[in-house]
Simulated assay, not measured.
Amino acid sequence: MVDRRERSRERLQEAALELFTLDGYTETTAVAIAERAGVTERTFYRHFRDKREVLFGDGDRLVRLLVDALPLRPKPLDRALRNALSALAADLTPRRERLARRAALVRAHRELAERELLKLQCWAEALAHVLIDRGIDDLTAVAEVEVALALFRTAFTLWVTSEDDAADLEKMIDRAYAATGRRTMRSQVLGSRS
């Protein structure tokens, strides 16, 4: 069950997307977002540092999701990372419509696009750090994480811009892997964290 704090956060995120789309990102203020969400400005700032963070506020949770999806023995590494991407896809899929609106805003504003790249860098650093701690050499860990996230980013972009309502993020990730000749082997992936 979603608690009151989480509902406020979600209302703020939805209100921000609506206002950014209607009035423009630059013109929208934190006060306007709070009013639209039916909360106080103080509540807005309890959840987010600024209006930009409304679009990136799930970052820590998504990093934890990715890291938690890695098995304790991450070999073969390509399957371990693909498992993490599957967990991410499962989490994002129910919010496709909202993520598509968010992605359009990010593409339209340079400062948001830069922040998006920073978010992906944080994901890469967190994943590589965990893999190194679990015995993968530095170069291999960093290279494999960067490749996996590039394939994810490609699939995600196609997914949120697709006009096909039945587009499937998981299948698009598979297609991105296949396009580079990389194995996906998702069906055999490391369901256990042993």
Rank of each mutant, 00 (worst) to 15 (best):
I173T: 01
D78I: 12
A84L: 12
T93N: 00
A80G: 14
A108E: 10
R134W: 15
R98D: 01
R95K: 04
R134K: 10
L77S: 05
E53W: 09
I173D: 00
R101P: 00
Q121V: 15
V130W: 05
F156C: 08
D68K: 12
E125M: 07
T157I: 05
D137W: 01
D68I: 11
R46I: 07
D60Y: 08
R64F: 06
P74W: 08
T93Y: 01
R64H: 08
R46G: 11
E41V: 07
D174S: 05
L169E: 03
I132G: 06
L62G: 00
S86P: 01
A104P: 03
D78E: 14
R64A: 11
V147I: 15
E114D: 11
L72M: 05
L81V: 04
P71Q: 04
V63D: 06
D133E: 15
R115P: 03
L139R: 09
R42C: 12
E146D: 14
L169Q: 09
D174H: 14
H109W: 06
D168L: 03
D165K: 02
A166Y: 08
L62N: 10
L158N: 14
H129F: 15
G57C: 11
R98P: 00
V142E: 11
S86D: 02
A167R: 03
I136G: 13
W123H: 05
R42F: 12
R95T: 00
I173F: 00
E53Y: 08
V63P: 00
L131K: 04
N83W: 12
G59M: 08
R79A: 14
R96T: 02
I173H: 02
V54T: 15
L72C: 07
D137H: 01
L151E: 01
R107E: 11
I136C: 08
R61E: 10
V142Q: 10
L117H: 10
H129S: 15
G57F: 09
L85E: 05
K171T: 03
R64L: 01
L81T: 09
R98Q: 13
V142I: 14
F44V: 12
A166T: 14
T43P: 06
F56L: 09
I173M: 02
G135L: 06
L92I: 01
V106P: 07
R61N: 02
E146R: 13
R49K: 13
A141F: 02
P94L: 04
D133G: 09
S162Q: 03
L62E: 09
E146F: 04
R110C: 04
V145S: 09
D165F: 02
A108M: 07
A113W: 04
L118K: 14
G59T: 05
V142F: 10
E144I: 03
E53T: 14
D50T: 15
T40H: 15
F156A: 12
D165I: 10
L99A: 00
S162D: 10
A80C: 03
E163T: 07
F152P: 05
R175S: 12
Y45F: 13
I136P: 01
R101W: 01
Q121M: 13
L92C: 00
R115W: 05
L120A: 13
T154I: 01
D137P: 11
